Computed example of a mutant assay.
Amino acid sequence: MAKMVLLAAFVSIGGTDLSAYARKVEVTVEVEDKDVTTYASLGWKEVLGGLKSGELSLEFLQDVAATKIDSIMWPLLGTVVPFVVRLDSGAKSTSNPEWGGSVLINGWNPIEGSVGDEASVSVGYPTSGAVARTTA
């Protein structure tokens, strides 16, 4: 079994490469389970897949200087924008798949932390529409 250490993941939101600010990325997708159990199920629960949903969770190191992460993300608040992530910053390929779609930028935490902490921002954005896994 191959093993991997994340060293140079690629993160893009709204067409802007934010990899230099990101230190954690997580894409989660799930399918609702719908209970379709009947008396004919003989006491066993039966389920079918319902609506799919996803979330893009990120942790950024904050930078409020002009043209940096805060000035990139703030104007996106309330908009649906494309996202792309890869496990490696190299080109998308069969050994470096890309996950992408659109997310709603539904929040931004410009200030987060305690005395002595690094300035970081943790966010989680719901996907809007399909999330695709592509290799070419």
Rank of each mutant, 00 (worst) to 15 (best):
K24G: 09
V85I: 05
S19M: 04
A8N: 15
N106E: 11
N106Y: 09
V115M: 07
V123M: 09
D63G: 05
F83T: 00
I111H: 12
V27S: 04
Y125I: 00
A130L: 10
E118N: 08
L76E: 02
E55G: 03
N109G: 03
N96Y: 04
V64S: 15
S19P: 05
Y39A: 12
V103Q: 04
S122I: 00
A22Y: 00
V115K: 11
V5R: 13
L48Y: 13
I72Q: 09
R86A: 01
T28F: 01
E59I: 02
V29A: 11
P126F: 00
W44L: 13
V123E: 08
S95G: 08
L76C: 01
S102R: 15
S114I: 04
D17E: 06
G43R: 10
G50A: 07
V80A: 09
G107D: 11
A132R: 14
F83E: 05
G14H: 07
T67E: 13
D63A: 03
V25S: 10
L18Q: 08
E118H: 07
V5C: 10
R86H: 05
V84E: 11
A8K: 15
V11K: 01
L76I: 01
T38D: 12
W74Y: 08
N109M: 05
S19I: 03
R23A: 07
S12L: 00
D17V: 00
E32M: 06
Y21M: 00
T67G: 08
F83Y: 08
P82M: 05
M1Y: 14
S102N: 15
R133H: 12
S89H: 12
V103G: 04
F10E: 06
N106V: 02
E98A: 11
V47I: 08
W74T: 04
L42A: 13
E98W: 08
I105D: 10
E55T: 06
G15W: 05
L58I: 03
G50R: 09
S120D: 07
W44E: 15
S89P: 02
G14A: 06
L61H: 12
A136V: 14
M1P: 11
V115P: 04
V27W: 02
S93H: 04
L18H: 04
R86D: 02
A40D: 14
G116I: 00
V25Q: 13
D17R: 02
T134V: 11
W44Q: 14
L18P: 06
A91F: 02
L76M: 12
K34P: 03
A2E: 15
T67A: 09
K92I: 08
G50F: 04
V5I: 11
G101L: 07
E98L: 06
A130P: 06
L56N: 04
W74C: 02
I13N: 04
R86I: 00
G101K: 11
G129K: 07
L6T: 13
D33M: 14
V103P: 09
G113R: 03
E32D: 14
